[in-house]
């Protein structure tokens, strides 16, 4: 994986358990700066205030969903180049196609393994 491991990563999920799991895996993969947000709106605030190299986001969240956040990121000049990896239980083909059309960088279906996360990050940062 050719990713810059010092980049800031934002993990977006309304469930604290999932945020912790994703953070743990990212830490195992060598990422040292991992921050959290509970929904898309909070994530956008953080993204606009800082410099992030990657967003790992859930789909179903209160306040602002992952897909709405993805669309907001892609339509924001400052943020649109940030890779967004969706990690979600939304396992219908329609959801995946909607995410692709919105500009997702890659897509992981829950439940997933650390190997899957590593593989997808490898593809994003190849």
């Amino acid at each position: 994986m050719a990713a810059d491991l010092t980049m800031k990563v934002l993990v977006v999920d309304d469930m604290a358990t999932m945020r912790r799991i994703v953070k743990n895996i990212l830490k195992q993969l060598g990422f040292s700066q991992v921050e959290e947000a509970e929904n898309g709106a909070e994530a956008l605030q953080k993204l606009r205030a800082g410099t992030y190299g990657l967003v790992v986001s859930d789909w179903n969240m209160p306040v602002m969903t992952g897909i709405d956040m993805l669309r907001a990121i892609r339509s924001d000049e400052k943020l649109k180049a940030i890779p967004v990896l969706m990690v979600t239980a939304e396992a219908q083909q329609g959801n995946l196609i909607e995410a692709i059309q919105a500009g997702v960088s890659n897509y992981i279906v829950k439940p997933f393994t650390a190997e899957t996360m590593q593989e997808k990050l490898g593809k994003i940062f190849k």
């Binding site: 469930m15 799991i21 195992q28 439940p111 650390a114």
Partner: peptide, 20 residues
Amino acid sequence: DERRLTEIMTALSFQDLVAQ
């Protein structure tokens, strides 16, 4: 063992699926 511990962590994602 480190690999197995990471597997334990990811296996705990069942809680998120059940909660949904």
